[in-house]
């Protein structure tokens, strides 16, 4: 059984204009690379900050040892 072959779509003036415009592009990835590096740097700062907070809360750094005899201020 022979397959029906579709004729290729005729390119309209709009398609040709799009191609002409695309060909004018002069790619420059450097500014985007810079943005990626900035994001990476900010991301690592946030990560550092979060791990510092987690560290402080996990190891109770800087907190006084609680006095077992101290009574709670809350009414029972």
């Amino acid at each position: 059984m022979s397959k029906e072959v579709k004729p290729p779509k005729r390119e309209s003036g709009w398609d040709l204009l799009r191609q002409e415009n695309e060909e004018k592009h002069k790619p420059d990835f450097n500014p985007i690379r810079g943005a990626i590096r900035r994001n990476e740097f900010l991301g690592s700062l946030v990560e550092l900050f979060v791990s510092a907070i987690v560290g402080v809360s996990k190891f109770n750094l800087g907190a006084k040892e609680s006095d077992p005899n101290q009574k709670s201020d809350l009414k029972e």
């Binding site: 799009r18 415009n21 695309e22 060909e23 004018k24 592009h25 790619p27």
Partner: peptide, 10 residues
Amino acid sequence: SPKVYGKCIT
């Protein structure tokens, strides 16, 4: 980027 540029310039 060429496609995006093509769209933007149009």
